[in-house]
């Protein structure tokens, strides 16, 4: 059975990882604006995620401007898939319990 992941129980971290799951690479600015965090708050979350090998960070330049790109690692993808399955199981169980109750 799929297991919930402790790190992804935090809604902000889940939002970041879910966003990155649909992307190959995403710019730091895009993730920051999408999850509505400040630079420093996103930086902290990304550090936590990259320490756990969920997110890979690449830095580079576009012209003279420095850019940072984020990528979900295979570990991150697998963990997210398991976490989503576990969430679906919880939601599904609640639905089936709710459907059974009126019959009692």
């Amino acid at each position: 059975m799929a297991e919930l992941d402790q790190l992804l129980l935090d809604p902000t971290r889940l939002a970041i990882v879910a966003l990155l799951a649909a992307a190959d690479w995403a710019e730091f600015g895009f993730v920051r604006d999408s999850v509505k965090l400040s630079d420093s708050a996103l930086s902290k979350q990304v550090t936590t995620l990259s320490k756990n090998d969920y997110v890979e960070v690449r830095k580079g330049y576009v012209g003279k401007r420095p850019r940072t790109w984020l990528n979900l690692t295979n570990t991150g993808r697998q963990t997210l898939a398991g976490h989503i399955s576990a969430l679906q199981a919880i939601a599904e169980n609640a639905r089936s319990d709710g459907a059974e109750q009126p019959r009692r």
């Binding site: 809604p11 939002a15 879910a18 966003l19 799951a21 649909a22 992307a23 995403a26 969430l87 919880i90």
Partner: peptide, 18 residues
């Protein structure tokens, strides 16, 4: 179950944004 549903919605929204 409510929190799980909200988390699943957030996952779906992330995909939509990308």
């Amino acid at each position: 179950p409510e929190e799980a549903a909200a988390a699943l919605r957030s996952v779906h929204e992330g995909k939509e944004r990308v």
